[in-house]
Design a protein around this nucleic acid. Structure first.
Length: 303
DNA sequence: GTTGAGCGTT
């Protein structure tokens, strides 16, 4: 095949230049970039659509119909690269509040709707084989993990909570959690989740039961939590105060602080702990919650 | 009425 010239412009509307092909009929990428710095390939318009040309060993290959059939213009690497933030890895997630009767299969069936599952476990008493009322799951896709962490789950007639377990590394609750003071009884966990969800993904809301005038909100991103500390916010007409989630008085042993995820102790780090209290939420008062079987036992207690 | 449930036999 003899050398021919290919009509190439930088953008579709720009003035074209003729570029020489190689003996094998290909167009060297270096020939293109000599004229159009940064170009990474060629494309052309076929009918209404854009078509890209094959690139092999830094050579752009002609379309089946030959070079002469089209005018070409350059493709460039994305510059507005959507922040090549490496996707965070999925962690094991703990599923709390499972009905006694619920086994791996039901848990898998339920969470498969969020994404591919790599692991499902329901923890059981080794002697009796009875479920302990919690289990662990792991997703393949971090987006699935985010979706699962962002809400509660109705499994076999019970509301269940999914959270990051306290026994694995990955981020201490200490910096992801805020204390919300001056709460009134009118502020439900749903209210708080909805309100604070506007600032960043909320992974946990804890509302003490019976009522106490505070709550805890845990975010996925520690920077969101930290940015809110020291502020007063008005939620449903209630002025609440946000501060760091550490007790005003050291009331306990280091082990307790460790337990709340407030100290970075030695070995296993603690986070997203304790769970939220959704028992008061509008959701659980109605709808699916009331479908819980009448013989449902209080969980975490054996008989 | 401003500081919290519960966490993995391998």
């Amino acid at each position: 095949m003899s050398i021919e010239y290919v009509v190439v412009s930088e953008g579709e509307q720009d003035e074209p230049i003729e570029l020489p092909t190689e003996e094998d009929g290909s167009l060297l990428l270096s020939t293109i970039s000599a004229q159009f710095a940064g170009a990474s390939g060629l494309k052309y318009r076929a009918g209404g659509r854009l078509r890209g040309l094959r690139l092999a060993d830094d050579r752009v290959l002609p379309p089946a119909e030959g070079w002469a059939a089209h005018h070409y213009f350059c493709a460039f690497p994305r510059t507005d690269a959507p922040t090549p933030t490496p996707r965070p890895r999925c962690s094991d997630l703990i599923v709390l509040g499972l009905p006694w009767k619920t086994g791996e299969e039901a848990v898998r069936d339920y969470f498969a709707a969020f994404g591919e599952l790599l692991m499902v476990q329901v923890k059981r008493d080794t002697k009796t084989g009875l479920s302990k009322g919690f289990g662990f799951i792991k997703f393949a896709d971090y987006d699935a993990q985010l979706r699962a962490l962002g809400r509660r789950h109705m499994i076999d007639g019970r509301w269940c909570d999914v959270r990051i377990p306290n026994s694995k590394d990955g981020g201490s609750a200490a910096h992801r959690k805020v204390f919300v003071g001056r709460c009134t009884e009118s502020l439900t966990a749903d209210d708080l989740r909805e309100y604070f969800g506007a600032f960043g993904q909320v992974t946990d809301v804890f509302v003490p039961k019976p009522f106490r005038a505070f709550s805890f909100v845990t975010f996925l991103d520690p920077e969101v939590a930290q940015s809110l500390c020291g502020q007063d916010h008005i939620i449903k007409g209630v002025s609440v105060n946000i501060s760091t989630a550490s007790p005003k008085r050291e009331r306990g042993a280091r082990s307790q602080l460790l337990g709340w995820g407030l100290l970075e102790g030695g070995a296993p780090r603690v986070y997203s702990w304790p769970p939220d209290a959704w028992q008061h939420s509008a959701h659980s008062a109605h709808s699916a919650h009331s479908t819980a079987p009448p013989d449902a036992k209080p969980y975490l207690k054996y008989e």
